[in-house]
Design a protein around this nucleic acid. Structure first.
Lengths: 216, 216
DNA sequence: AAAAAGCATTGACAAAAGTCAATGAAATGA
DNA sequence: TCATTTCATTGACTTTTGTCAATGCTTTTT
């Protein structure tokens, strides 16, 4: 401890600036967290100690089908997707996650059953992982963490219910219009054939839907 | 209080038996609750005091689109559905709820925005309602209630993710087979055109899917 | 810089699902 | 009990979406 302080000359500012690109980033995580629960500095520190920073290169796996999912991943930077692969090798995208979003195979995480989804990076990404032990310890010791978790899952549930409702209620044109207005970022950063997969369509069909819409 | 005890002669057993059909039923609720969290008798009593029993006749509304949803409803007996109605008057079923399930318009409940769904009874039903004030009081005073809520929503989220995955991954035959094996009760008690609506299909298409399947 | 791989689009055709109309059976209600 | 409504099924036809193949444009890799 003292040794480290000595190296930075007591005031760590110069080093922080120099190695800024090497420092794990927590900004978006705590910003999101503070939107939902009020935390003391000590409580923030406690949570920070339970987070594991991880960087991922584009195309790198975070989770592969068959492995047990041992974390919930918060995206500080970059873009990821979760997806399954059917017998024919066709990928079905379940979820995208950009900055500020959380991604995991929750069922596998909670039950320790093998994961049914893959998760990989669509761009170079920086993540904060909450491992299973950390998750359980935080649940047991910090009620505000449980509150935050409850609110996170509630939000995810409501978002998914909207997605499901739009699938069974809307025309393709309406669904794509709704998607682009809710997730303009994803439209800009993700290839269209992946958006088609997310919508349960072939790339050709999505291309034709888009053509019709610009025509009008 | 004493007056009531006197009426039943101190031992309320005879009355309980006589008016059994008038007593609110909590059995399934607490059975489900105990599966998830350990509760003392006092804590169970506290929760019971925050529940409002309600009976519903078949076809009766529990919630209408446009009203603010002021409760989460637990089904002790019967069957309900939530659904939206489009401009053409077509009903889209979002969810079914049988005994032991919970139903609500969560978004409306949490935000106090007008509900976008209707909820009504498919059979004569008995419910336990958790009103918004009761919900918030229990969250604030009984950590185990928050834990239970978190687990409930997590389960609902995982179930919905499965449903969504099956919609974008499986053929109609596979989807219907999966539905009947997961929810045999619903198949028995709910008209097929409602199951078609739940699956986002016309009744004719579901009928033809079923025909194909029995043929094989 | 050249080669390869990934991506979006288009056309021709096939398969899947929806629409409309009719029928008969079953459940509901007066 | 009889009349009415609800429901599931079927047929003929239309619309929507998928499949396969080809093209040209980018982006990535070597």
């Amino acid at each position: 401890m003292e040794g480290r302080d000595n190296i930075t000359g007591g005031n760590s500012f110069p080093l922080l600036l120099l190695f800024h690109h090497l420092m794990p980033m927590y900004e978006i995580f705590f910003q999101k967290l503070r939107e939902k629960v009020n935390l003391s500095t000590d409580e923030e520190e406690l949570i920070k100690q339970h987070l594991t920073p991880k960087k991922l290169r584009k195309r790198q796996y975070l989770l592969q089908e068959g492995d047990v999912c041992k974390f919930i991943a918060f995206v500080e930077k970059g873009a990821l997707r979760s997806y399954s692969v059917d017998e024919k090798g066709v990928e079905r995208i379940i979820q995208f996650a950009l900055e500020g979003w959380t991604i995991s195979d929750l069922y596998s995480f909670l039950t320790s059953e093998p994961a049914t989804y893959n998760i990989d990076a669509l761009e170079d990404s920086e993540l904060l992982l909450i491992g299973k032990a950390a998750h359980e310890e935080l649940l047991a010791t910090l009620p505000k963490y449980e509150t935050w978790m409850r609110l996170q899952i509630t939000g995810a549930y409501i978002a998914m219910q909207r997605r499901l409702t739009s699938i069974i209620s809307l025309s393709l044109e309406e669904r794509y219009a709704s998607f682009t207005s809710i997730y303009p970022q994803i439209v800009q950063r993700v290839p269209q054939h992946m958006i088609a997969s997310y919508m349960g369509l072939t790339p050709e069909t999505l291309s034709r839907v888009r053509k019709k819409m610009t025509g009008k």
